[in-house]
Simulated assay, not measured.
Amino acid sequence: MNAVTKPFARSLNDRMLAGVMGGIAHRFGWNSTLLRVVFVIVSIASAAFPGILVYLILWLLMPNEAD
């Protein structure tokens, strides 16, 4: 099987801040709103999961869709 995968990139169309969650959702075919809600809940509920730091790192490492 030779499956064509979508690129791992920040979304230009589905973004709230930087398009990180929109890009991840598009890559895996998930609902971006649901992913954002889950990410915020996990970030708030777990002191061991630094959500803001993870988001900032992904923002720096993920290219834009157009790049």
Rank of each mutant, 00 (worst) to 15 (best):
Ser11Cys: 14
Ile41Lys: 02
Met16Gly: 09
Val20Gly: 03
Ile24Lys: 00
Arg27Gln: 11
Phe49Tyr: 12
Val42Pro: 00
Gly29Ser: 11
Lys6Asp: 03
Ala47Trp: 08
Val20Arg: 04
Phe49Thr: 06
Ala47Met: 07
Leu35Trp: 02
Ile44Val: 15
Met16Ile: 14
Ser46Phe: 07
Pro7Thr: 12
Ala18Val: 09
Ser32Met: 01
Asn31Trp: 07
Leu34Val: 14
Val38Tyr: 12
Arg15Tyr: 05
Val42Gly: 00
Phe49Gly: 03
Arg36Cys: 13
Trp30Lys: 08
Leu35Ser: 09
Phe28Val: 14
Leu12Ser: 10
Gly23Met: 03
Met21Glu: 07
His26Ile: 00
Ser43Ile: 00
Val37Asp: 13
Ser11Ala: 13
Ala9Arg: 11
Ala47Pro: 05
Gly23Lys: 01
Met16Leu: 15
Ile24Ser: 00
Gly19Ala: 11
Ala9Cys: 14
Phe39Met: 13
Phe39Trp: 15
Ala48Asp: 12
Ala25Phe: 11
Ile44Leu: 10
Ala25Val: 07
Lys6Gln: 10
Asn31Val: 12
Ser11Asp: 10
Asp14Lys: 08
Leu35Gly: 04
Gly19Met: 04
Arg15His: 05
Val38Glu: 06
His26Ser: 08
Lys6Cys: 02
Phe49Arg: 04
Trp30His: 15
Leu35Met: 15
Ser32Glu: 10
Phe28His: 15
Ala45Glu: 02
Gly29Lys: 09
Ala48Cys: 03
Asp14Met: 02
Trp30Ile: 06
Gly22Phe: 02
Ala9Trp: 00
Asn31Gln: 12
Asn13Lys: 14
His26Glu: 13
Arg36Ile: 06
Val40Asp: 02
Arg15Thr: 11
